[in-house]
Design a protein around this nucleic acid. Structure first.
Length: 224
DNA sequence: CAAACGATCGGCT
DNA sequence: GCCGATCGTTTGC
């Protein structure tokens, strides 16, 4: 390629796939530990008919996550209550939990912990890592449509959970899928993140959770 | 079976 | 900053 694509100063990225054991830990361990990892998705673009049969690889550096656990009111699995929608949350860690919100958006979660406990990490934001990714994200997020243009800062391209599923091409078909390289979505080791660069704060959009809405279970990587 | 309600986004003021 | 869009999931009658 042209070699001009610069996602910022980053050390070498370790492309080793994260093993299932990485996810089979408590959700509050996994959620901050996912910062600096790379999420990879090989999914159809689903745009023009000609492109619909092609597959594109999108690689995003994980910048923001949130933890959800059945012990608190913010979680779909609160109180251990199972429904057809949240079934994936109760499986052993290492699979995807994908659900639909606000009548138009998909959200991508990583199931954590042991089988029988409802917990998952919501992936909220990411940084495009290469030219192929940027090309695919431009198309999927509609940056090339008339009257629209991509954000000037690359870290504003995928800065919300619904924007992230749009960029990766994730929808209900990935719900319950194992996160492994032989599937369509998986994680790589990525780059190390210093502990003092991780900022914890309250999760967004869960006012109905009462006092649990103030738990500092949102994790953001602030690159200095 | 009907109806309310979102773990949000993008466009406009 | 506010507001409208839009529909799967859940809950209650």
């Amino acid at each position: 390629m042209c070699g001009k694509f610069q996602p910022g100063d980053l050390p070498a990225i370790d492309e080793t796939a994260l093993p299932q054991a990485f996810f089979r830990r408590p959700v509050l361990d996994v959620a901050p530990d996912l910062l600096g990892r790379v999420v990879v998705a090989r999914l159809p673009t689903g745009l023009a008919p000609a492109a619909a049969t092609q597959e594109s690889a999108v690689r995003l550096l994980v910048l923001e996550t949130e933890a959800y656990h059945e012990s608190e009111r913010g979680a779909h699995a609160y109180g251990g209550r199972r429904t057809p929608r949240n079934a994936a949350m109760f499986q052993a860690g290492g699979i995807a939990y994908v659900y639909f919100v606000y009548g138009m958006h998909w959200q991508f979660n990583v199931v954590t912990g042991r089988e029988g406990t409802g917990e998952a990490v919501l992936i909220r934001a990411g940084l495009p890592l290469d030219l192929d990714t940027a090309t695919c994200v431009r198309a999927r997020r509609g940056f090339d449509l008339p009257g629209r243009k991509p954000p000037s800062r690359l870290d504003k391209w995928v800065d919300g959970p619904a924007k992230l599923t749009q960029a990766l091409g994730i929808d209900r078909r990935q719900d319950g899928q194992p996160l492994r390289p032989d599937q369509s979505v998986w994680f790589q080791v990525g780059v190390p993140v210093a502990a003092d660069q991780i900022v914890a704060g309250p999760r967004v959009g869960i006012d109905y959770a009462g006092e649990d809405a103030q738990l500092p279970w949102r994790f953001r990587w602030i690159r200095s």
